[in-house]
Computed example of a mutant assay.
Amino acid sequence: MNTLYSNSTVVPSGNANPINDHDDAGERGFDVYRAYQRALADEDISPPLAAIHSLTELVTSSNAGTMFELVRALNDGAETLKKRVPNPIGLTAGCELFIGFVTLFPHESASFSELKREIVHQGKSYTSQAIKFRTKIAELALGFIKDDSVILTHSYSRVVTQALLHAHTRKRISVYVTEARPRGLGLKTYGLLTAAGIPCTVVLDSAVAYVMDQVDFVLVGSEAVVESGGLINAVGSNQMAIIAKAENKPFYALAESYKFHRLFPLSQHDLPTHNSGILSFPHSMNRSATTQTRASPRLTDDVPDGSASASLPQRTMTLEQMNRNPDVDYTRPDLISLVFSDVGVLTPEGVSQYLVGMFAGL
Rank of each mutant, 00 (worst) to 15 (best):
G197E: 07
V202W: 00
I131A: 10
Y190T: 02
C95Q: 07
I243M: 07
S113H: 10
D305Q: 13
G26M: 11
F30M: 10
I151M: 10
S222F: 00
T194S: 11
Y36N: 12
Y210F: 03
C95V: 05
Y210K: 04
M317V: 03
T9F: 15
A35Y: 05
Y190S: 06
P47D: 01
V203L: 06
S111G: 02
I89V: 10
G29K: 12
D205I: 00
I52F: 06
R262S: 03
A163S: 12
G230L: 00
E96S: 08
D270E: 04
M240A: 14
T291P: 01
S352M: 09
G186L: 04
S267Y: 00
H121W: 14
S237V: 09
L140M: 15
R34P: 07
A234C: 03
I173M: 04
S352R: 01
A295Q: 13
G123N: 12
A78D: 11
L299D: 06
P265K: 06
D305V: 09
S54H: 06
V85R: 10
E139T: 13
V177Y: 01
C95P: 09
F98H: 04
H121A: 12
D216H: 06
D301A: 10
Y354Q: 06
P199M: 01
T347R: 00
A64C: 10
